[in-house]
Lab assay of single mutants.
Amino acid sequence: SHFELRVGTITLHFDNISEELAEELEKLAKNGVHADEIRRWWEEWLK
Rank of each mutant, 00 (worst) to 15 (best):
S1V: 15
S1G: 14
H2T: 07
H2K: 10
F3A: 01
F3R: 01
F3H: 02
F3W: 12
F3Q: 01
E4Q: 05
E4F: 06
E4M: 02
E4C: 01
E4V: 06
L5E: 01
L5M: 04
L5P: 00
L5A: 00
V7N: 01
V7Y: 03
V7Q: 02
V7R: 00
G8K: 01
G8R: 01
G8S: 02
G8E: 04
G8F: 03
T9K: 09
T9V: 08
T9E: 15
T9A: 14
I10T: 11
T11P: 00
L12A: 00
L12N: 00
H13V: 15
F14D: 00
F14H: 00
F14L: 03
D15M: 12
D15S: 11
D15N: 10
D15R: 05
N16C: 04
I17C: 04
I17A: 03
I17R: 00
I17Q: 01
S18M: 03
S18F: 03
E19N: 13
E19G: 12
E19L: 12
E20D: 10
E20T: 10
L21M: 12
L21E: 09
A22M: 15
A22T: 08
A22R: 14
E23C: 07
E23W: 12
E24S: 09
E24W: 10
E24Q: 13
E24I: 13
L25F: 06
L25T: 00
L25H: 00
E26N: 11
E26W: 06
L28V: 02
A29C: 05
A29E: 04
A29W: 04
K30L: 13
K30M: 13
K30V: 09
K30Q: 13
K30N: 13
N31A: 13
N31D: 11
N31K: 12
N31T: 14
N31E: 12
N31R: 14
N31H: 11
V33L: 15
V33A: 14
H34F: 09
H34W: 07
A35Q: 07
A35L: 11
A35R: 02
A35F: 08
A35Y: 09
A35M: 06
A35W: 07
D36N: 09
D36V: 11
D36I: 06
E37F: 06
E37T: 06
E37L: 08
E37M: 09
E37V: 09
I38L: 07
I38K: 01
I38C: 02
I38V: 06
I38D: 01
I38S: 01
R39I: 15
R39T: 12
R39M: 15
R39H: 08
R39F: 12
R39Y: 14
R40M: 11
R40W: 07
R40H: 09
R40L: 12
W41H: 13
W41T: 13
W42Y: 15
W42N: 01
E43H: 10
E43N: 09
E43I: 10
E43Y: 09
E44S: 09
E44G: 05
E44C: 05
E44N: 10
E44Y: 08
W45G: 04
W45Q: 10
W45N: 06
W45M: 09
W45S: 08
W45T: 07
W45P: 00
L46Y: 09
K47I: 13
K47P: 06
K47Q: 13
